[in-house]
């Protein structure tokens, strides 16, 4: 019985356990930061003028500025125009299925503490098909940065109502105007238990970069809603927030206490264009840390034993 038809194949490996991955030393420890050219991959397939271009450009800038190396960054997305993101970045990436990028990214984050995990996606991906995953990833505080490029519409499938479409928006599925109360992403994130909640818009590059950087530095699940105009199907959606289009861009009031959940919730309820900046930031142990704690406790009892010896001990009790 114990002869395996398909035996184990030896592959070179790094060893170590899952929460303490040892990465082989890099040949040139003195590596320079990457240039934009080195970070850019495929030319984006987005419509000219799409807001998503600026989010991508600022992600490049973030990698450049923070001197992140290709292999340290993992870009993950679901499905949608915005979710095409990983193809445009020269780094490890995964293009998963519609709405499920967060659990996929959680698998990466939890098993690879050595990586920066970034997730990009659209409003439908995040709050409709992926709504439940959003809540659970937030409450578990799994370490990653999630940027939702909110265009208030389904872009890829060509103009259907999205969960963030405002009442009255005329789409192909609501030709008379949207009738369902939209989701407020900021409220959603705060009430789900996200520990970093920020809002920005693609028309203010410096602000986008600032928010992404703060999100990346946050130890936990960091969520950034970035308004990103769909020039094709919802032109002018965010004009009221764009000074160049006669709108106003107002940052979060200087006296806003980012640790005050109620204040953050209130701020989220402001009528459009509302405020931009960090609404909420809390310190709470990440799931990554909690699981590492569980492992430390368990391994303190098995410490030093080989894996087969640990299993042998269990089998001895099954005799």
């Amino acid at each position: 019985m114990s002869e395996l038809a398909i035996p184990f194949q030896t592959l070179p490996r790094t060893g170590g356990n899952l929460t303490h991955i040892t990465v082989p030393p890099l040949p040139d420890a003195e590596r320079k930061g990457l240039t934009k050219k080195e970070i850019a991959a495929d030319h984006p397939t987005w419509c000219p003028g799409c807001g998503d271009f600026s989010v991508l450009a600022l992600y490049f800038k973030l990698i450049e500025k923070r001197k992140l190396h290709h292999e340290k960054v993992t870009t993950i997305a679901g499905i949608g125009c915005s979710s095409r993101f990983p193809y445009f970045v020269q780094a490890h990436g995964a293009h998963f299925i519609h709405g499920r990028a967060l659990p996929f990214a959680s698998g990466v984050s939890l098993s690879r503490p050595d990586l920066h995990v970034f997730v990009f996606g659209g409003d439908g991906d995040a709050f409709s098909i992926g709504g439940n995953h959003f809540s659970h990833t937030a409450r578990k505080n799994i370490k990653m940065t999630y940027v939702v490029m909110d265009n208030w519409v389904y872009g890829l499938t060509k103009k259907q109502t999205s969960p963030t479409s405002p009442l009255g928006f005329k789409s192909k599925t609501d030709t008379w105007g949207a009738v369902d109360q939209p989701i407020n992403p900021m409220k959603q994130a705060i009430s789900a238990g996200a520990t970093f909640v920020a809002r920005t818009t693609h028309t203010n590059p410096n602000h986008v970069l600032q928010m992404m950087e703060a999100a990346m530095d946050h130890d936990g699940f960091s969520f950034v809603e970035c308004l990103s105009e769909c020039i094709e199907f919802y032109e002018g959606a965010f004009d009221a927030s764009n000074p160049r289009k006669g709108g106003t861009f107002t940052t979060v009031p200087a006296d806003h206490d980012v640790t005050d959940e109620i204040a953050a919730y209130k701020l989220s309820g402001e009528p459009f264009p509302g405020h931009f900046g960090i609404f909420y930031k809390a310190t709470r142990p990440t799931k990554n840390a909690n699981e590492a704690g569980v492992n430390r406790a368990a391994m303190s009892k098995t410490g030093g034993m080989k894996d087969w010896q640990i299993l042998q001990k269990t089998f001895d009790r099954l005799k």
Binding site: I76, F96, I97, P103, S106, G107, V108, S111, N132, H133
Partner: peptide
């Protein structure tokens, strides 16, 4: 769905 997605993330990792 989350379970298989997360496991796939683990495999990818």
């Amino acid at each position: 769905i989350a379970s298989i997605s997360m496991a796939l993330g683990g495999s990818y990792a």
